[in-house]
Design a protein around this nucleic acid. Sequence first.
DNA 1: CGGCAAGTTGAGCCAGGTCAACTCCGGTGG
DNA 2: CCACCGGAGTTGACCTGGCTCAACTTGCCG
Lengths: 252, 252
Amino acid sequence: MRNIKIKDKCKDCALYSDGKLFCAQLSGDELCELSNQSRTLSMKRGDTLENEALAHWPIVAIDSGVLSMQHLLQDGRKTIAALFMRGDIIDLRNISNRNRGALIALGNVDVCRLSPKIFEQIMGHNPDAQKVIWENLRDQAFRAMDHSGDIAKKQALEKLASFIFECRNRQVGFTDGDLVKIPVRRIDLAEYLGMQPETVSRCFKDLEKRGVLEAPSLNALKLLNVPMLRRIANGDKDVLANESRIRVLKIA
Amino acid sequence: MRNIKIKDKCKDCALYSDGKLFCAQLSGDELCELSNQSRTLSMKRGDTLENEALAHWPIVAIDSGVLSMQHLLQDGRKTIAALFMRGDIIDLRNISNRNRGALIALGNVDVCRLSPKIFEQIMGHNPDAQKVIWENLRDQAFRAMDHSGDIAKKQALEKLASFIFECRNRQVGFTDGDLVKIPVRRIDLAEYLGMQPETVSRCFKDLEKRGVLEAPSLNALKLLNVPMLRRIANGDKDVLANESRIRVLKIA
DNA sequence: CGGCAAGTTGAGCCAGGTCAACTCCGGTGG
DNA sequence: CCACCGGAGTTGACCTGGCTCAACTTGCCG
């Protein structure tokens, strides 16, 4: 009877229903215990996980939607330091909130606050679960490092191209490959890439003009020339050189 | 006898001699086994851990020195995506080398390539070791996210100020607090922060002119006004406003 | 002491930030 | 059902922080 109740709570959650994710690795008892001691939460755009809430529930698992870690500067400049999506587990235990960003939803987000006690028990005893969560954290770390590399020296067009690949790599299910869903708004995208919304807009237009992609809507792209997009993302200046040659011809 | 031999190999290594780090958590048998199956390596500036070597030894622990993860763009632009120091353990198992940077030493670096097999065994059975390594990976992840936030929207002076705090937070031992060691060269610093060496140089001069710090040598700083440095790092425009007011006065 | 890489300084320029005006779209209330 | 509203996105014109290039100085190592 209790099991049935738990099934109700967890059965539609990605963490359980996707065999590769955390809760799918648990035994019946483990899942039951974790489920009972954890709390789900539905957030909508702009909702923040407050520090006091995080003090009690420092482990957050994402079922669906996009959660951002935002840093705010004194004068209002904002940056999105990381994006968390389906399957990501954020462990903020003992992370001083100095120098830690705020966790803010970028749309409708379903999360599950996991009981630290049960989580730690499972970490200690279930190698499969441990492996899943270790790989998830590694992904987060290397993704953040990649992202640092991307925004450090790349120019606007190249950053955007890299971001499109990041979206393609992270999207679940259909791997059509030429259809990419952009799960965030332009304004969030700009903050994630360290640029202005105006610049993002101009860069999308630029990519369309070059015939690299078309953007039927604000959150979907159809890639028309993946190799060229790759070259742009890798900072190949030949691609851009074409453009300036054209401009020169026009002027001449 | 064998134990004595192992002591020779490991006794001066930070991972063992610093009680907070990984190898200090191991039982005698575990340390013995891990030591026998692992390989130390001394690197000097510019040395790279090659992909084929990493395929066999994908887990790298840093004893001393600074190791960088570098991304290279087509046209030669380089960025340092992350800095690894004493105690950091880099786990590259199953990380596709596409989109992964190269690991390059920025000076003399002593590393230990850990046996994946033994490492995994220890992960499974030793909760203390597991905890240490989990926290280390979390540090790496959150540090990378912080860094992304720093370089995304901050301007040059602010990035440099943030970097000085990062160095202060990471330096071991003496917490004088006003003395900060810069463990990398200017040129590496520039690549880590996504700026030009020229700009780095100008910014250090600027900070000296403002009386925030003095730089007796290239790799040591003495902080004179920590609160102001903090405000600069946090993007407080009032500090910079002073400067422009001065400039305005000068012009007027 | 010579040679070379790292670091600094100065001058000019451009990618992208800034500001302002406008359009588009989804949600809300009469 | 439509009018209205506010936030998101776009477009154009302008401006500036930091990149670029070149010349120079400094520091390190054999």
